[in-house]
Structure formats: structure tokens, C-alpha cells
């Protein structure tokens, strides 16, 4: 594969600055509603704040790749006297937990940095974080080009994992007949 210049979008998360308000979840779910901003539902957000005030845990985490597999991630991290589960930091939409899944369909969610046309100056979670716990920057990196897995494909993959590929194919066939 060829090397190419790639703009890498980075959000720096300062957990000491997070006040736990979850505005990031609100604006994320609202932006990704169809039509845009037509509904709000933090359960659909692609960012979530793990919030346990009395344990001083305020941890915004972004949704990453979907994975069909459970993992062994039950270890614990102690950072500055606070205990986190390994799972807390993980971005995956996975079978071990209900995070980063559409609440009704169970389809996986993934942060897309609010990529859209026209491009937003900054992802909206960053814009709505007046505490500056989320700070956005772009930098150039060299990276190997990879074909991008389309959203639909990710969704189909998840449905196939849930119901089996055969079931999925026959369901699609049935739907196609009814059209």
C-alpha cells in the first residue's frame, strides 16, 4: 500500500477539567439525529461521560470500532488514586456492554468527528464543552492508505453477528421482494 499524507483529527481530553454536565452527549446525539437536530437522546451519543462524582471519575470516552468479540478487559487501573475499569477507556461497541449502540436496534455507533459538508470548524462536542475538557486539533501524519469501511457495511456486519449471516441474507431477500 502507498503512503499518503493524512490529516489526523485529535481531541485532547482533560479529565480534570470535565464537570460532568454531559453537554457533549446532548449535542452529539442531536447532531446525528435524522433530520439533523430533530431529536435528542444521550443514549445514542457517540461520546459518553463515565461519571461517578463521589469517586472523582469524570471520563469522556468516544465511540470507536465495532467488534463482535467480547474481550478479557476486566483489569483495573488506578490513576491518581481513582480506580477505573479497563473497559472504561475502551472505545469499542462490543457485546460486553450496552455502550455505543443504538438503544432500539443495537446497531453500533462510532464517532465521525462530525464530518459533514460543509465541514464544521470543530466537532460539536468540543464546541459545546465550555469547560475546555475537550480540545480539538488537526495534524498531518503519514499513513498507509486503507479502504474505508462504509457505515452500512459496519451495520450489516453487526446484524450478521447478531442474527447470523444466513438470517440476514434471507431477511434482505424478503425485503427486496416486498419492495
Amino acid at each position: 500500500m502507498s503512503k499518503a499524507k493524512k490529516t489526523v483529527k485529535v481531541i485532547t481530553i482533560d479529565i480534570e477539567k470535565c464537570n460532568g454536565c454531559r453537554a457533549c452527549e446532548v449535542i452529539c446525539s442531536s447532531y446525528h439525529a435524522e433530520p439533523k437536530y430533530s431529536s435528542n437522546n444521550p443514549a445514542r451519543s457517540r461520546i459518553r461521560v463515565i461519571r461517578d462524582p463521589l469517586k472523582n471519575i469524570f471520563l469522556p470516552v468516544y465511540a470507536g470500532e465495532y467488534t463482535p468479540a467480547e474481550c478479557m478487559g476486566r483489569n483495573k487501573y488506578i490513576i491518581d488514586g481513582r480506580e477505573y475499569s479497563e473497559c472504561d477507556f475502551c472505545r469499542a461497541s462490543c457485546p460486553s456492554r450496552d455502550a455505543f449502540k443504538e438503544p432500539d436496534s443495537g446497531l453500533p455507533l462510532k464517532c465521525d468527528m462530525c464530518e459533514d459538508d460543509p465541514t464544521l470548524e470543530e466537532p460539536l462536542c468540543v464546541q459545546w464543552c465550555l469547560a475546555d475538557a475537550l480540545v480539538y486539533e488537526e495534524r498531518e501524519e503519514e499513513a498507509e492508505e486503507e479502504p474505508k469501511q462504509e457505515d452500512m457495511e459496519i451495520g450489516l456486519r453487526a446484524l450478521a453477528d447478531k442474527y447470523g449471516l444466513k438470517e440476514l441474507v434471507s431477511a434482505v431477500a424478503r425485503m427486496a421482494q416486498k419492495e
Binding site: 464537570n19 460532568g20 454536565c21 453537554a23 446532548v26 472523582n56 469524570f58
Partner: peptide, 10 residues
């Protein structure tokens, strides 16, 4: 220990 907010309020 930390200043905190209510839901969706800065």
C-alpha cells in the same frame, strides 16, 4: 475536590 455541573449546563 472538583466543581461540577448539572445536566447540559456549563
Amino acid at each position: 475536590e472538583r466543581l461540577i455541573s448539572c445536566y447540559n449546563c456549563p
